[in-house]
Amino acid sequence: MDYKYIEQLLERYWECQTTLEEEAILRAFFRQEDVPASLLPYRQLFAEEDKMADEHLSEDFNERLLARIGETLPAAGQPEGGFFKAHRLTLVRRLSPFYRAAAVIAIMLTIGNAAFQSMSGEADNAPQVAATLPSDSLQHPAIGGPEHQSAALAPQPADTLAK
C-alpha cells in the first residue's frame, strides 16, 4: 500500500501546515490496526492524545458546583428551571408574528387592489372614448385626406353624441 499521502500529511503536520481536517485524517489513520513499520513510532503520539481527549470531570461535579451556587439540577426529563434566563411571553407577543404577517398581507392587498383598479380604469375609459366617436370617423381614418382629418377632429353634432 502507498502511504505517500500520509507521509506528506505527517511532514506538513510537523511544520504546522495541516488544516484541522487533515489532522483528523492523520488521527483516523493512526487509530487503525495496520500501520506500516516506518510510521509506527508516531502512533503513540496520536494514541496519547486520544487518551487525553477522554479525560472528564467526575460525575457529580455539576451537582457540587450548582450546590455551591445554590441551585440543583432538574430531574431527568424535566425542563430546566433555576437561574437560567427565561422570558415570559405574553399572548400579544406570542401572536405578534401573525399580526405582522397580516399587516403585510393587508398592505399588499391594498396596493394590489389600487393598481388593479387604476389599470382596469384606464381600460374602461378607452371604450368610452371610442364610443363618443362617430361611427364614420372610425370608418375613415385620418390618413384618408385633410377633409377627413378635419371631419374627425371637428366637434360632433349633439345627435351623434346621443348615440
Binding site: E55, L57, F61, N62, L65, F83, F84
Partner: peptide, 29 residues
Amino acid sequence: ISFRNVVLPLGDRLYRLALRITLNKAEAE
C-alpha cells in the same frame, strides 16, 4: 446566555486544560 446550556458544558474542556497545566486531577477540578 444560559449558565446551564452554555457554560456548564464547557466543564470537560476546561478540565483537560487545567489538567495539562497543573498535571493533577484534584487540583484541575
